[in-house]
Write a protein that binds this DNA or RNA. Structure first.
Lengths: 121, 121
DNA sequence: GAGCAGTACCTTGCATTAACAGGTACTAGG
DNA sequence: CCTAGTACCTGTTAATGCAAGGTACTGCTC
């Protein structure tokens, strides 16, 4: 593997880390705002330095909706097509609680590895 | 989507969270032990509640080796075939430092979202 | 009122990646 | 020998984020 490939791998890591946690992030944003639509979520994640693009969150929102974690209602916009405003269902709030527990457990595990490493250094 | 599908999704989340961070975990374990082989890494990750299987780490080790993040030397075993004992290269140590920075930035971003959410609750 | 810009929704195809299952090879003990 | 145990490796599959393209609605300009 060439050095160029290698560097691109390193730059890619933050994107890799994000994988699989996006659902959690989206639920967090929706839970915070109560009434948000796709662009709001996009903006919130970008503000937190978690770059995501449109094509990524729409399938995710559909999936979370099918799983009955969140619901939406159409709201007409003064400029443009109507928007889907999302909010969490009871199931969604429950799931979010469990996801938070798993997130904490997960980061704790890795931080233990980190501390074990830094002890040597 | 049926409730069964839904539950399997939730059980799957820890696996999802792990995606993309495995490289980092493996580098951490190797950096800690200095001289470890695949089974050691497997055991260390399992001890930290990060369940991984054999078939997952071998391709990862090969990839990290090709990227010159780590090197190995064969050591004969008294019981079984010889083992590949891995250790970090200078590049590996450098990469690990960067990955740690990215890991911290990443978790900080998400924890900010979490705190913003818990403020409402 | 025809055309354009802007916004918002959604889908298709692609590359990457972890997991699964299976395969090879070496050692020791019966 | 031949089985059991250990260790390494490799196709194949499923999931996921991304890039790119497509539809539709509003309001503005000409």
């Amino acid at each position: 593997m060439s050095p160029a490939d290698d560097e691109s791998r390193l730059e890619n890591v933050q994107s890799q880390m994000r994988k699989g946690v996006l659902e959690y992030c989206i639920l967090l944003v929706i839970a915070r705002g109560e009434q948000v639509y796709a662009s709001d979520i996009l903006g919130a994640l970008k503000s937190s330095n978690l770059i995501v693009v449109e094509g990524t969150i729409y399938p995710l929102l559909s999936r979370l909706n099918r799983s009955e974690y969140l619901k939406y209602n159409w709201v007409e916009s003064s400029a443009g097509p109507p928007r889907k405003y999302y909010s969490l269902t009871a199931r969604g709030h429950e799931a979010l609680k469990q996801l938070t527990e798993q997130w904490v457990a997960f980061t704790t595990s890795i931080n233990e590895l980190r501390e074990a490493h830094e002890k040597d250094a």
